[in-house]
Amino acid sequence: MRKILVLDAAQRSALAVTRAVGQLPNVHITTADAAPMALAGQSKYSHSYLQIPCSKESPTAFIQWVEQHCLNGQFDLILPVTEVTSQLLLMQNYSTQQLPMAFARYATVMELADKANLVRQAQAAGVSVPNTQFFENSQALNVQQVTYPIVLKPAKSKIYANNQWVSTTVRILKSEADLAKVLEEDTYLAHHPFMLQEFIPGHGAGVFCLYNHGIPVRYFAHQRIREKPPEGGVSVLCQSVAVPEHLKEASEKLLTQVNWHGVAMVEFRISPEGKAYLMEVNTRFWGSLQLAIDAGVNFPALLTQHFFNEPAIKEAPYKIGQRLRWLLGDVDSLYIFLKRPNSTAKKLKRIGQFIWPRLFNQRHEVNRLGDLKPAWFELKHYIKELRG
Rank of each mutant, 00 (worst) to 15 (best):
Met1Val: 13
Ile4Arg: 04
Leu5Cys: 06
Leu7Ile: 11
Ala10Ser: 14
Arg19Asp: 06
Gly22Cys: 10
Leu24His: 08
Thr30Phe: 00
Ala35Glu: 06
Pro36Gln: 06
Leu39Cys: 09
Gln42Val: 00
Tyr45Phe: 15
Ser48Cys: 05
Pro53Met: 05
Cys54Ile: 00
Cys54Lys: 02
Lys56Asn: 07
Pro59Asp: 09
Trp65Gly: 05
Glu67Thr: 06
Gln68Tyr: 00
Leu71Cys: 09
Asn72Ala: 14
Gly73Asp: 11
Leu77Gln: 13
Leu77Phe: 12
Leu79Asp: 00
Leu79Cys: 06
Ser86Thr: 15
Leu88Lys: 05
Asn93Phe: 12
Asn93Ser: 14
Tyr106Cys: 06
Tyr106Asp: 12
Thr108Ala: 11
Thr108Leu: 01
Asp114Tyr: 00
Ala116Lys: 08
Leu118Gln: 03
Ala122Pro: 05
Ala122Tyr: 02
Gln123His: 08
Ala124Arg: 15
Val127Gly: 02
Asn137Cys: 14
Gln139Trp: 02
Gln145Ser: 14
Pro149Val: 12
Val151Asp: 04
Pro154Cys: 12
Pro154Phe: 10
Ile159Val: 15
Ile159Arg: 07
Tyr160Asn: 10
Tyr160Leu: 09
Gln164Ala: 12
Val166Ala: 09
Thr169Leu: 12
Thr169Asn: 13
Thr169Ala: 11
Val170Leu: 06
Arg171Cys: 06
Glu176Arg: 14
Lys181Ala: 13
Leu183Thr: 04
Asp186Met: 09
Ala190Leu: 04
His192Ile: 04
Phe194Lys: 01
Phe199Trp: 15
Ile200Glu: 02
Ile200Met: 12
Gly202Thr: 09
Gly204Pro: 02
Asn212Thr: 07
Asn212Gln: 15
Gly214Pro: 10
Gly214His: 12
Arg218Phe: 06
Tyr219Phe: 15
Phe220Trp: 07
Gln223Pro: 01
Gln223Met: 07
Arg224Asn: 11
Ile225Tyr: 01
Glu227Val: 00
Val236Met: 00
Gln239Asp: 08
Gln239Phe: 00
Gln239Ala: 06
Glu249Phe: 07
Ala250Pro: 05
Ser251Val: 05
Glu252Arg: 13
Leu255Cys: 07
Gln257Lys: 13
Gln257Trp: 04
Val258Gly: 05
Asn259Trp: 03
Gly262Val: 01
Glu267Thr: 07
Pro272Ala: 06
Glu273Met: 10
Lys275Pro: 01
Tyr277Phe: 13
Val281His: 04
Asn282Arg: 07
Ala295Lys: 01
Ala295Asp: 01
Asn298Ala: 04
Leu303Pro: 00
Leu303Met: 15
Thr304Asn: 03
Phe308Val: 11
Asn309Arg: 13
Ile313Gln: 14
Lys314Phe: 02
Glu315Phe: 05
Gly321Trp: 10
Leu324Arg: 01
Leu327Phe: 14
Leu327Val: 11
Gly329Lys: 02
Val331Glu: 03
Tyr335Leu: 14
Pro341Asn: 15
Pro341His: 07
Asn342Arg: 12
Ser343Ala: 13
Ala345Ser: 12
Ile351Val: 15
Phe354Trp: 14
Trp356His: 12
Pro357Leu: 04
Leu359Arg: 10
Leu359Ser: 08
Asn361Thr: 02
Gln362Asn: 06
Asn367Pro: 00
Arg368Tyr: 05
Leu369Arg: 12
Gly370Ala: 03
Asp371Tyr: 08
Pro374Ser: 11
Glu378Cys: 03
Glu378Trp: 02
Lys384Arg: 14
Arg387Ser: 13
